[in-house]
Design a protein around this nucleic acid. Sequence first.
DNA 1: ATTTCGTCTTTAGAATATATTTAGAATCAA
DNA 2: TTGATTCTAAATATATTCTAAAGACGAAAT
Lengths: 224, 224
Amino acid sequence: MKYLIAEDELDLQQSIVTYLQRDGNICEVASDFGEASEKAAIYDYDVIILDINLVTGSGLDVLKTLKKEKKRAGVIIISANNSLTDKLEGLDLGADDYITKPFHLAELNSRINAVLRRGKYGGDEIMEFNEIKIDTKSRTAYIDGKAMALTRKEYDLLVFFISNKGRVLSKEIIAEHLWGDDSDLLDNFDFIYVHINNLRKKLTAEGAKYIKTAYGSGYKFIED
Amino acid sequence: MKYLIAEDELDLQQSIVTYLQRDGNICEVASDFGEASEKAAIYDYDVIILDINLVTGSGLDVLKTLKKEKKRAGVIIISANNSLTDKLEGLDLGADDYITKPFHLAELNSRINAVLRRGKYGGDEIMEFNEIKIDTKSRTAYIDGKAMALTRKEYDLLVFFISNKGRVLSKEIIAEHLWGDDSDLLDNFDFIYVHINNLRKKLTAEGAKYIKTAYGSGYKFIED
DNA sequence: ATTTCGTCTTTAGAATATATTTAGAATCAA
DNA sequence: TTGATTCTAAATATATTCTAAAGACGAAAT
């Protein structure tokens, strides 16, 4: 695998490089944003490890470059502290995962593996739909950067919708996915109405009207 | 350097010893957990290579001994399978790295070098979360510079939370990591409530309300 | 356009599931 | 043995999920 490590703390940079090279990986480094952006634009990396608190420039630039150049590198953001805003920033930047300092190299390693594994299966750590962002790690959904207070079923429902956005989901399918073979319930699906309603309320409270009723067939999550 | 190789597959054990001795290292071996624990407690090793699938005893014991005796040996776990839980468990147990069978000796060697090199950064010395600092060497947690009087379980719980900050940890996962496969307990998880409660009390006594309940899913350690 | 019927929405609250807290018994370590 | 720690058990508290029922809406038939 080929990595770009954009980190200006040189001993940390070196630790990561050594750790990754140990497994036969190819590493390139960047110590400031200019260098990081440039390399990210030109070369194809499998994973980019990006410290958003580099002294020069803005982390957005590097990620924008990646999007513009349609680079498919997985991005793991290193952030110095774990405040909510930083985390949200991480989500906004479109990173695949984030890790907060200080961390164990082995922990970084398992995140890298998760990101690489994901490329194949597509199970994202962070999901997005317009102003809605879901951090599956903390099981928290954000709307316009604000954490939503969702119950477990509401959260599961939202995740299911977003991972099937645009597709009509029948009550049967939804029930099967959220309740499994709990056959007591599967006679009627009235309870779905209630959960849909509750989730809708919380979404529309923030101005998001994404759950459309497909009369007679189900629901779909889609732009107005 | 001085090594302890705790491995009961004798030809593998011998291979490792020969490989390391060729570079002028001192090696001692142990073929069961009793021997490994005893030697680990008495002698000072730079690196301990520990097969967690030894037939006798529990891998926890050796690592617990190391913690109790405040031994600073780096630990590399050899594990027979490579499931994620095993990996995480290994890290949680305080190991510095892990390697899964089968492996090339050269790979083991580079892991050893990484572990030796590490000490520097990310060495498992100090963990931090806002005003909380944990000195893993002395197993002491400080809050605003003040040492907290934590019991073992409370300390372990706090470390587990902070090393997985932001992530929802189910009671099952917590139990698995703090109690291992002690299957007597794993039927119900009520005792978790008590430890959470106790830890919370001690944290909130200092104004830190970081343990959030994720109703129905678990707990997470996170900014308010 | 009106009726009709099946489908969906909405609400309130009952039932259930989950979490907190306390006290004390059992266990462990010094 | 003693004191600290850990676990058990039970009460209390809280949150979620489901049921039920009344009304609104959509679509097809008249």
